[in-house]
Simulated scan of single mutants.
Amino acid sequence: MTASSTETLFSTPRYASEASRQPASRRIVVAQQANLAARLLDHPTPTLLLCLGETLPGSVEQESLPSSEALYLRLQMLLEQAQAGTRLYVCGDESFLWHIHSLARQAGLLGDEIELFKRGTRRRLYCVHCGHFQDIGNEGECTCGQCRVRLFVREHFSQRLGAYMGVCLDPDTPLAPEVRP
């Protein structure tokens, strides 16, 4: 049995469209770009915005970090020191969202304490043949960047891996044309 084009699989992530009003002792908003998080900053609870590049005008506490790696390290440090009641809000494309989600879960946040807001089309793909992760757009097929197998991008999303599954598109000719002997 397959899902029709109007149905979404149970594993397909669902993203928030607006922030919940759950009580929090502190809110941490992490954004790929500061402007993506503007709607999440209007809240009376103390809020810290971590973002890449630019910051936003306003009174909210903000930290602009020069790279994704610096942002991940800063967030990890904040989450390790976080008190009970801290909530995390994340804005960006799926690849960014699920990397931050994984960091937060490893730091001890519960799934209910993390809200994800998808902005952008980039997503993460996992090759089931070699275990390689790569970022893709909305395409339904691509070539694995490591083993060069032509992959069909399944709609199934693994929250554990933070990625969609890529399986061999054509078992009779698994390699991309430029790689075939």
Rank of each mutant, 00 (worst) to 15 (best):
I28H: 00
I28V: 07
I28E: 04
V29E: 10
V29F: 02
V30H: 02
A31I: 09
A31G: 10
Q33M: 06
Q33K: 15
A34F: 05
N35Y: 04
A37W: 10
A37D: 08
A38V: 12
R39Y: 03
L40D: 01
L40F: 09
L40W: 01
L41M: 00
L41I: 06
L41A: 03
P44N: 13
T45L: 11
T45P: 01
T45R: 06
T47P: 01
T47N: 04
L48R: 14
L49A: 05
L49K: 10
L49M: 07
L50N: 03
C51L: 03
C51M: 11
L52F: 14
L52N: 13
G53W: 03
G53L: 03
T55L: 15
T55S: 04
L56P: 12
L56S: 08
L56Y: 07
L56F: 08
P57S: 13
P57D: 10
G58N: 04
S59R: 15
E61N: 09
E61W: 00
Q62P: 02
Q62K: 01
E63N: 11
S64P: 00
L65E: 11
L65G: 08
P66Q: 14
S67N: 09
E69L: 14
L71E: 10
L71F: 13
L71D: 07
L73I: 05
L73T: 10
Q76A: 03
Q76T: 01
L78S: 01
L79K: 00
E80G: 04
Q81V: 00
A82C: 09
Q83A: 14
Q83V: 09
A84S: 15
T86Y: 05
T86G: 08
R87M: 02
L88G: 08
L88F: 08
C91V: 12
G92T: 08
G92F: 07
E94Y: 08
S95N: 14
L97N: 04
H99Q: 15
S102Q: 15
S102K: 15
L103D: 09
A104I: 06
A104S: 02
A104F: 02
R105L: 14
A107Q: 14
G108N: 08
G108W: 02
L109Y: 07
L109P: 00
L110A: 15
L110D: 09
G111V: 11
G111T: 12
G111H: 07
D112P: 01
E113S: 07
E113R: 00
E113Q: 14
I114M: 06
I114A: 04
E115R: 09
K118D: 03
K118M: 14
K118R: 12
R119G: 03
G120C: 02
R122C: 07
R122F: 10
R123L: 13
R123I: 01
R123A: 11
R124H: 11
